[in-house]
Design a protein around this nucleic acid. Structure first.
Lengths: 226, 226
DNA sequence: TCGTCTATTTATAACGG
DNA sequence: TCCGTTATAAATAGACG
């Protein structure tokens, strides 16, 4: 190879080692290229130097991955494949579950009932009637609670305004018109707050329904309302 | 390299190509070994011949996988990672969809209604009432169709048996007992077939319900019936 | 299809700028 | 540290058995 036979043994001088590494690396890469062209072979060559730098050569007809995959295939040491297959299995199961759930929803929505037997239809009907009752109860609970909250809010306003009124009256007894204006508002609010809850509910509902478009539609209910 | 300068160009004679491949492969492997020892390097060398055979060399201090992992890390061209992440993303989405669907089912089952607004509850109730009507209609359709089918079957039996009876009577007028036996069955069947459909339905239903355990329970209806 | 032998080419260690 | 040069070892194409 050069001036005098060299012995194949670790080069202790690290500078020389690096120089030799560079030269010989080039040599191997050249050989690999020649092998690729001459013999129509596919070579994947990866080299890590003692300074932990990586150098490579791949035949232009392929990639490291392709060659490495072939190696894994041959050696049977593919650790990725089982993991991948497991994931795909999970994916498939989830999709199936999803489809079943969608179907159940469609059936609970009165569609896709063809394949249900008479008994199943009976069960479904019974269950839905029970469920709609739950919804109705919950609805009642919500509207009751929300009118209570409204009442409290109004009562709060009432108190704030009456104290404001008092303040105005105390501070400036000469001003009558502003006082009267406030008194007007005060009265109408009182009337509203003390109204029959039943009637109050009717008054609130249309206002809420007018906002329905702006609310995010929940699931398919939004569609089914249209 | 040998007797006369060789040109680096594909060897067309496939036998020679293989011979050259073997010789040069040995040469590269030798070089790789020398690099490993001399320069304290780690080499992963994979070669695929034109006849699709794989040969390899790895430095004894490492493995192909280790070196390949380093290559992936350095080059950032990990082809598995994006795929893996994509799969995990799909998995996550499917799980979320699943949960949403389950929640919708629970809500259509009258549970988990706490976070629904009054408007949403109204929509849900309305939708469920519409849906239960669909189920009811379907149920009616099924029971009607199935009693029609039953009627036809029975009518068939009736005809078969009456023709049998006729045959018996015509063939052997002396045999009275068998005739009477058949007549008995015949009568009871007729009675059954001509029964009020309403009553017929009642007769069938208990029989079908007793088979309910054997039927595959559909989704959660099986549970909700219990 | 092999291994072995050589005439040559190639690779490269050591050195010098 | 990075060229180029050079003497020499190694690699190897082609031949032969």
């Amino acid at each position: 190879m050069g001036r005098g036979k060299i012995e194949i043994k670790r080069i202790e001088n690290s500078t020389n080692r690096q120089v030799t590494y560079s030269k010989r690396r080039a040599g191997i890469v050249k050989k690999a290229k020649e092998l690729t062209v001459l013999c129509d072979a596919q070579v994947s060559l990866l080299m890590v130097s003692s300074t932990d730098k990586l150098h490579e050569y791949v035949s232009p007809t392929t990639t490291h991955k392709t060659v490495y995959d072939k190696y894994q295939q041959e050696s049977g040491s593919d650790l990725w494949q089982p993991h991948y297959e497991k994931m795909q299995g999970t994916l498939k199961k989830l999709k199936e579950t999803n489809n079943k759930l969608r179907k159940e929803i469609r059936q609970r929505n009165g569609e896709d009932l063809d394949e249900l037997s008479f008994q199943q239809l009976c069960g479904l009907e019974q269950n839905m009637e029970k469920s709609v009752e739950c919804v109705r109860n919950r609805k009642f609970h919500v509207i009751t609670t929300s009118s209570d909250t409204f009442k409290k809010k109004i009562k709060n306003h009432e108190e704030t305004q009456s104290s404001l009124l008092r303040e105005f009256e105390e501070r400036d007894a000469d001003f009558r018109f502003p006082s009267l204006d406030y008194e007007g508002d005060y009265q109408s609010n009182i009337g509203f707050a003390n109204g029959n809850p039943q009637i109050f509910a009717f008054r609130v509902q249309p206002k809420l329904q007018s906002n329905l478009q702006d609310e995010e539609p929940y699931g398919s209910y939004g569609l089914s309302l249209a």
